[in-house]
Design a protein around this nucleic acid. Structure first.
Lengths: 144, 144
DNA sequence: TCTATTTGCTAAACATGTTAAGTAATAGGG
DNA sequence: CCCTATTACTTAACATGTTTAGCAAATAGA
């Protein structure tokens, strides 16, 4: 039984894109007021959870490519939200840490960020929200 | 019952991002051989289905912002994959059409594109794949 | 009909996405 | 120990994402 060519509303890549826009729109608005981008926010969140991390690990967790992360870390350093040092045990690596100012910025905005996601969860219903997360993680786990 | 702050693997924005990367990776590789970007491909797909469309509609269907679309249409026009004309009934608008060369490019690559998505579908299972699409569309339909 | 507003698109500026190439430090094998 | 390959990042170049501003055409009222 052959399926027809999918139109945009039944195309997985576009459905993923639209869903992400729906979720990120309000969060981006919030971050805009603090003059920080969505990607910078993701990096800060990772550093808040791990306290210190090397760029490769940050990139993996924040779902960023290293060239993008390089520029982002430069900007976060300029804003004095993070500090960087060379790893003395392996001088190819770096140790990135969040500063007090960075932690303060996270703590000031995390409640709103969580509330916005809670709103999505409430509108979808907890069960379907969790089911969606499960399916997305399952998709991420396939071969590729 | 309060939930803990979500870690990255349980964060909806990042889960959407990772899932999209998983799906688009192979498709991007395919398009790279034809020297066309993922976004240019989306625009071409819309034009193939509608034959003629105005930029605002294309942007909506391909999930692009108008400033991005402006540049993309300029490049597709240079590549002679589309043609543009002013709409004589409303001279603010344009009429964008796909050329024969554009249609040929789509037809040469669509089977592979579909096969790659079929592969994802097979690995996830049809039911879960469809369930994922339903949940994504449901997410897109909430208030925001 | 005149003007204020809206609509459709473009331009500009800055940030990131993506690929390819480059550099320095480390690891591995002979 | 030397040479090669690998790893961790950086740089560069081009394309898109995102916001703001701008322009011309059309529309809505007064």
């Amino acid at each position: 039984m052959t399926r027809a060519i999918p139109t945009t509303n039944r195309s997985l890549p576009i459905a993923l894109l639209r869903a992400r826009e729906k979720v990120m729109g309000p969060i981006r608005n919030m971050l805009h007021d603090v003059d920080i981008t969505e990607q910078q926010w993701r990096v800060m969140r990772v550093l808040q959870e791990r306290h210190a991390a090397e760029p490769t690990k940050i990139a993996e967790e924040a779902c960023l490519l290293l060239p993008s992360l390089t520029r982002i870390l430069q900007k976060l350093e300029e804003k004095q939200l993070i500090v960087r040092a060379r790893d003395e045990k392996d001088r190819r690596k770096q140790v990135v840490k969040i500063t007090d100012a960075g932690r303060a910025l996270i703590e000031a905005n995390l409640p709103t960020s969580i509330a916005l996601l809670e709103d999505v969860r409430r509108q979808m219903g907890s069960e379907r929200y969790e089911a969606l997360l499960d399916l997305l993680n399952e998709l991420d786990a396939i071969d590729g």
